[in-house]
Design a protein around this nucleic acid. Sequence first.
DNA 1: CATGAATGAGTCTTCATTCAT
DNA 2: AATGAATGAAGACTCATTCAT
Lengths: 197, 197, 197, 197
Amino acid sequence: MARTVDPEKHAARRLQIIDAGLTCFAAHGYDGATTALICREAGIGSGTFFHYFPTKADLLLATLELGTRETEEWFATRKGRPDAAEVLREYVAHVAADATDPRVPGFVRAVGAVMTEPRIAEALAADERTLRAGLLPWVRKAQSAGRVRTDLSAARLTDWLMLLLDGFLGRLAGGDAFTAKRESRTLLDAVERLLAP
Amino acid sequence: MARTVDPEKHAARRLQIIDAGLTCFAAHGYDGATTALICREAGIGSGTFFHYFPTKADLLLATLELGTRETEEWFATRKGRPDAAEVLREYVAHVAADATDPRVPGFVRAVGAVMTEPRIAEALAADERTLRAGLLPWVRKAQSAGRVRTDLSAARLTDWLMLLLDGFLGRLAGGDAFTAKRESRTLLDAVERLLAP
Amino acid sequence: MARTVDPEKHAARRLQIIDAGLTCFAAHGYDGATTALICREAGIGSGTFFHYFPTKADLLLATLELGTRETEEWFATRKGRPDAAEVLREYVAHVAADATDPRVPGFVRAVGAVMTEPRIAEALAADERTLRAGLLPWVRKAQSAGRVRTDLSAARLTDWLMLLLDGFLGRLAGGDAFTAKRESRTLLDAVERLLAP
Amino acid sequence: MARTVDPEKHAARRLQIIDAGLTCFAAHGYDGATTALICREAGIGSGTFFHYFPTKADLLLATLELGTRETEEWFATRKGRPDAAEVLREYVAHVAADATDPRVPGFVRAVGAVMTEPRIAEALAADERTLRAGLLPWVRKAQSAGRVRTDLSAARLTDWLMLLLDGFLGRLAGGDAFTAKRESRTLLDAVERLLAP
DNA sequence: CATGAATGAGTCTTCATTCAT
DNA sequence: AATGAATGAAGACTCATTCAT
């Protein structure tokens, strides 16, 4: 009798393709990652790919949205914490930990190239908004607690915090001795110096 | 008939194409900037383009090399200066000034996505090496002068300085209120905080 | 468990798919009518479709055969009638009545484009043969009765009669003021004029 | 020195592709005529094709427009003629002569299948409008001269005339003994009978 | 030198059809 | 019987690059 979709299997397949996309985008850039390549990586036929994502761009979009959602959840989990400065530190550490996956910096770089596409630009903007919305209250709170400088507005400080994190990810893509593990301590220190009153 | 090969005209044409490439790469990314688009922007025919650059990648390469050479020259000019910390400050200000050209952040982002191509990766690496070679002596000197912290090696500090500059350029591409002019002062402050003993 | 193969249900399902096919072919043409579209229209899954028809072309074939059989039956019913001219008139009216279904002209047009496929060309030829075989005796009989011109052979006259009917259907597809209802009277008149001695 | 396009060569190439398209569309239908096939027929590379026509549909469109323009010119040439009935006869003969090209009926049939596409539907409608606009005045004039029946409006008579011509073309596609040459006389007679007062 | 028409390899994407459940 | 996820062959179209003028 007409067994309809197994939603779990569907979601799993979806994630499997997203993961393959992450790998390929990171390794070859957006345009360099052909759908054929992604399909091979995911171990599926091209038809299957388009069964799950109407467009290559939609795969990238889904990946970005996944990241956005994770950021959202990360901050949702911290809601109500009293120690703002510590939460900020934790987030920085969290980013450094994520950056341990060698695909992350390459992916970030790859995405930068497609900012041209309106939908992707919007997704990136949404991601930024989410991150800013997540960080801003804690920066403000830390300011109130006197733990963070107040000569710059919370909004600008947040921008600079994000700048530092972006720069960190970017530098990792260089592939040299600059690795997430080795430099995460210095990252925390750099943030501290940036925010210090 | 004397075939006049006017080297000046040639060089001018070359720069004109490089400029058009800069514009197009910044606006559409590397793959999005079709040779047709670049030719239109430069006001030349496609045949002419390939007279000057055997390949689209070579245009990008030439652009990168131009930047590398400029960096080289910038530091060559400062050779022998006694005030290391001031030189570093000047370089940071120089980057901020360059970043005033709205194409620069877009171009940087566009290039990041092509790291896949070996020749371009190498050019980027060369650019990095040049910049690092330019900065490192001054960082060291400033350390000796006690103006800069010594808990991190000069090499690592240089990396972090570059990280800050990269992050700055990256944030400018966002297009929001974060503009080179408005934030250059904070950039100098951030560098100061990073390097402070 | 008795596996109940209900032939009635099967035939009904079949007709339902044929009907959906008629609708889709008429609206989107043969190639434009994707199996997915037909399945949606029929309210079935794609798997079911191919249970009933091994191929999309077979659906079209079945539809054509249905029409051929109906034509056959129409003429079988008239067998033995004494008034040939009246039978011809009735058939013309019958076509005009069928053409009231707005899908018919579109379907005819859609089919015309697939004549390329041998099997379908053959089916169309068979349809034609059937129609000709149905009309020819009556044309001949009407000629004998002096009701129809004899300067052209019965075969050719039949061709021209079919030409008029085809043209009529084709014009209906235009969608303008030319509707089957409004023009059926003129159609009868045109046939009369064509056949008049 | 920069010799720009040779417009003659361009137009010739264009016509060559249109001709190849006519051949392929007629033989395989619109969808069956792959761009690859058309290119092979035209003896050009696929890139060249899209140099001249942005889209396969645009080739069809161009072909249709060519026909429309020819119809326009045909009637423009007859402007001012006193003998309306004779002009109509000539046009019918003209269509019959054109239909001698065995590709014409197939092409007409092929086009029918794509009426789905708005741009093509519009082009077909424009073609119809042009033909109607060409015929209508002569039908009216012939009515005034008492050479043509007046129980139907000139507009409807024109529709019926076009119906006859369409039916004629359609029947030719059958490929049987019904050929343009053999039947053109009967066509003229049929028209006469249709229009006779 | 400059041009732009011509090229064809390479992409994304569609869709009829199969098959395990 | 019915389903719809999976498949991959095939097609339209793009674009860097070449070359005759």
